[in-house]
C-alpha cells in the first residue's frame, strides 16, 4: 500500500497552524527572533503560545510546553475549526510522535526538586509523567481520544523520518487506519544550556510541532503527497555523513523507480552535509533551520511540512517529487522521497 499524507499542520515561530506556516514558506520568510533566557540568548519562539489560552484551563495545570505544542497541533488535525471531530480521524486512529528527550525543562525541574526540597521526595507527583518521554504522545491520546497505537519515536534530527517510517509500518501491517504522525520540540533555558554544553553554536534554537495525517488505506483520494520511500543509514564518523546520505538517496530513487533528474525540491533538517546532497541539482532547496530555527527532533518534520507548503503554493500540471533529508550528529542519516500529485489530482 502507499502511504498518503492527506493533511498537515504546524505550530512554530512562524505562527499557529497550516496557513501561517504556508504563507511564510511561500515568502521564504524566516521566523522572528525573540529574546530568551538564558540571558542574553535569542531563539525563535512560537509567538503568544500561552498554554491555557490555546488549550483552555481544563487539564492544563501541569501540562508542559512540549506537550501543549503537540496537543495543539494534533488538535488542528483531529477537529475542524468548528470543533467537530473530523470523520476520517476516528477514535481508533493511531498517533506516532517524535521527540528527543521530551521536555528538558520538565525533566530537570523534577530532578532539581529532589535536590532542593526539604525532603527528596517533595516533588509534584502530578508532574512526574512530564519527566517520562511519552508524555506528549500520551496527552495527545487522552485529549483527542486516540485509542489506537500511541508510539513515541526518537532519533535526533532524523526523528521525523523515523516516525514516518514507523507510521508506515503500522499501516502496512494493518495495525492502524488513520495515523497522526509528527515530531515536536520545545525551547527552554534548560534545552539551551544542554545544547550549548553539547555542541558548537549553530542555528538559533527554535521550537514547535509539525504533524501529518496519514490517510487510511481505504481512502483512495490522492491526498497532498505520497510517501514513496524512506531510507536510513548510520555513519560512524561525521566525515562519512555525506556518503551515507548519498546511499540513502540512491536507494530511495531505486526503490521508487523515480529519476533524480525529475526532482523538484530538496528540504533539509539543517544537519551536516545535507546542503551538499545531489550537489549541482537545480531543485528548489529549503532548510527547516532557515524557516523556524533549530527544532532538533522536529527539524525533519518541519522540512517535510515546508515541502508540502511550497507545493500547494506552487501547483503545477505535472506530478513532482521532493526529497527530505536528515543527518544527526549521533550518526543517524535518513531521507524520504515524496510524490506530489499534479494540480488536477489534488483535492
Amino acid at each position: 500500500m502507499t502511504t498518503t499524507i492527506s493533511d498537515w499542520s504546524a505550530i512554530s515561530a512562524l505562527g499557529l497552524g497550516r496557513p501561517a506556516f504556508a504563507a511564510a514558506v511561500r515568502a521564504r520568510g524566516t521566523a522572528a527572533e525573540t529574546a530568551t533566557p538564558p540571558d542574553p540568548g535569542r531563539a525563535r519562539l512560537v509567538p503568544r503560545f500561552e498554554i491555557r489560552e490555546v488549550l483552555g484551563r481544563g487539564g492544563t495545570r501541569t501540562m508542559d510546553r512540549v506537550t501543549a505544542l503537540a496537543v495543539a497541533t494534533a488538535g488542528h488535525l483531529v477537529g475542524g475549526t468548528d470543533g467537530e471531530r473530523r470523520a476520517d480521524v476516528g477514535n481508533e486512529a493511531a498517533l506516532v510522535l517524535g521527540t528527543n528527550i521530551s521536555s528538558a525543562k520538565s525533566s530537570m525541574d523534577f530532578a532539581r526538586d529532589t535536590l532542593t526540597q526539604a525532603k527528596p521526595f517533595f516533588v509534584d507527583a502530578g508532574r512526574f509523567p512530564n519527566a517520562v518521554l511519552n508524555c506528549a504522545a500520551a496527552q495527545c491520546g487522552i485529549r483527542h481520544t486516540l485509542r489506537g497505537p500511541n508510539a513515541t519515536i526518537s532519533g535526533g534530527r532524523a526523528t521525523g523520518l523515523l516516525a514516518l517510517n514507523y507510521a508506515r509500518r503500522l499501516q502496512r501491517s494493518g495495525r492502524a487506519g488513520a495515523v497522526l504522525c509528527g515530531a515536536v520540540e520545545e525551547f527552554s533555558a534548560e534545552r539551551a544550556w544542554l545544547e550549548g554544553a553539547a555542541a558548537a553554536p549553530g542555528a538559533l534554537l527554535g521550537e514547535g510541532c509539525a504533524m501529518f495525517l496519514l490517510a487510511p488505506e481505504k481512502d483512495d483520494r490522492p491526498g497532498l503527497a505520497e510517501v514513496l520511500a524512506v531510507e536510513f543509514s548510520v555513519c560512524a564518523e561525521p566525515a562519512g555523513a555525506g556518503a551515507a546520505l548519498g546511499t540513502c538517496v540512491d536507494r530511495a530513487f531505486t526503490a521508487s523507480g523515480e529519476s533524480p533528474a525529475d526532482l523538484w525540491a530538496i528540504a533539509g533538517s539543517g544537519g551536516a552535509a545535507e546542503d551538499d546532497v545531489l550537489a549541482g541539482h537545480p531543485a528548489v532547496r529549503l532548510r527547516s533551520t532557515d524557516l523556524v530555527g533549530d527544532t532538533h527532533a522536529a527539524s525533519a518534520a518541519f522540512a517535510l511540512a515546508a515541502v508540502l507548503a511550497l507545493a500547494e503554493s506552487e501547483r503545477t500540471g505535472d506530478a513532482r517529487t521532493a526529497l527530505v533529508t536528515a543527518v544527526d550528529r549521533d550518526g543517524v542519516v535518513g531521507c524520504a522521497l515524496l510524490r506530489l500529485p499534479s494540480a488536477g489530482d489534488t483535492r
Binding site: 517520562v132 511519552n134 532519533g155 517510517n165 514507523y166 543509514s233 548510520v234 560512524a236 551515507a244 535518513g334
Partner: peptide, 20 residues
C-alpha cells in the same frame, strides 16, 4: 544508534521507542 556504532552496522535503521 550506539548499538550500530558498537557492532559496526551501517546499513540499519536505528530508532529509539520511548513509549514508557
Amino acid at each position: 544508534v550506539s548499538i550500530a556504532h558498537e557492532l559496526g552496522l551501517t546499513d540499519v535503521e536505528p530508532v529509539t521507542v520511548p513509549t514508557a
